[in-house]
């Protein structure tokens, strides 16, 4: 493959982790790796993108109060018009990444492969890997139509690693006016207070599920996560029930986590949850039901009531510290 482009989200000059992961993948398949970025700080992000393997950075500039989806997709479409289509476009499956990929797909009339967890090259084209049925099976797929293939890739599918690349060539690209599709405007940005690390970056994740019994008992999960300098997570069941916000959800429809240790509290282990956490180095599960599927993948399984085990565990760790 000659050219692969990566959609590189950045914030204040710092590329997102998934962008760096995708660059590591891209440079293993193609000699020319382009990174499409935008927003204030994009110029500062270029150096880091170069270190991670981008040979050329396309800076679309500040999107202002627009949502990135329509205009960044239009910018990529214009770039393809000008320079020809790359063999593949790799996009991280983030909130904005999905918007850009979806918009671009419809604009170019090209399909998107989604929820990719691995890539390989076969006969000069990229083959995507997808974890299906809770990660019990791996499905491989490829595009059969015209390039570019749009690949939406889940975070943590590759390891980000600097490649020792030099300063990339930086080209400014235009951010086209897309009219009505750009009608939605951001009026305010709110950061939620978080005392610990981000869920998908944390070395320790403590998650709660339906077995906690009620929303109030989620405080035990938060306390344990805090003591271990980790992040609290959740199963889909308790997010659907409104106990905790969607941002806490681990699994197929939520975040993929690969911490040093994952502690599942009152989580039975639905396939849709396990696909998001079975990549953890160590898994500890506490559940009343000894036949819960979570025990089939746990390194340490405790058959017991979270309401008695968790308070004792919290006290023991406090004493330990």
């Amino acid at each position: 493959m000659d050219r692969i482009w990566v959609l590189a989200e950045q914030r204040d000059g710092e590329p997102s982790t998934v962008a760096l992961e995708l660059l590591a993948a891209a440079r293993s398949f193609a000699g020319t790796v382009g990174a499409v970025t935008w927003g204030s700080g994009a110029a500062e992000a270029a150096a880091t993108l170069g270190e991670h393997g981008a040979t050329k950075v396309y800076d679309a500039g500040d999107v202002g109060d627009s949502l990135p989806g329509p205009r960044v997709a239009a910018a990529i479409a214009a770039l393809i018009e000008a320079e020809g289509a790359p063999d593949a476009l790799l996009v991280g499956q983030t909130y904005d990444g999905r918007d850009v990929a979806g918009r671009l797909s419809a604009r170019l009339d090209r399909p998107v492969l989604t929820n990719i967890v691995g890539l390989s090259a076969e006969d000069g084209a990229l083959v995507s890997e997808h974890a299906i049925f809770g990660g019990t099976q791996v499905l491989k797929a490829r595009f059969t139509g015209e390039s570019p293939g749009i690949f939406l890739i889940r975070a943590k599918s590759f390891a980000a690693e600097p490649a020792g690349g030099g300063a990339p060539e930086v080209a400014s690209i235009e951010l086209p006016d897309t009219g009505a599709t750009d009608g939605a405007k951001v009026k305010g940005r709110h950061e939620e207070e978080r005392s610990g690390p981000q869920l998908d970056e944390a070395a320790v994740v403590v998650s709660g599920g339906r077995g906690l019994g009620s929303a109030e008992h989620y405080a035990l999960v938060e306390e344990l996560a805090g003591l271990l300098h980790g992040a609290p997570g959740a199963s889909r069941a308790i997010v659907d029930a409104g106990w905790v916000p969607y941002s806490h959800q681990v699994g197929q429809t939520g975040k993929t986590v690969k911490p040093t240790v994952y502690i599942a509290c009152g989580i039975s282990g639905a396939t849709q949850h396990m696909v998001g956490m079975k990549g953890a180095k160590n898994i500890i599960a506490i559940n009343k039901d000894e036949s819960a599927p979570i025990f089939t993948i746990a390194d340490l399984g405790v058959v017991g009531d979270v309401h008695t085990v968790l308070p004792k565990l919290i006290e023991a760790i406090k004493a330990h510290q």
């Binding site: 993948i297 340490l300 017991g304 085990v309």
Partner: peptide
Amino acid sequence: AAEERKAGEIVTD
């Protein structure tokens, strides 16, 4: 079939 993760030790509280 994906590579399977093996179950470890199960203890009853």
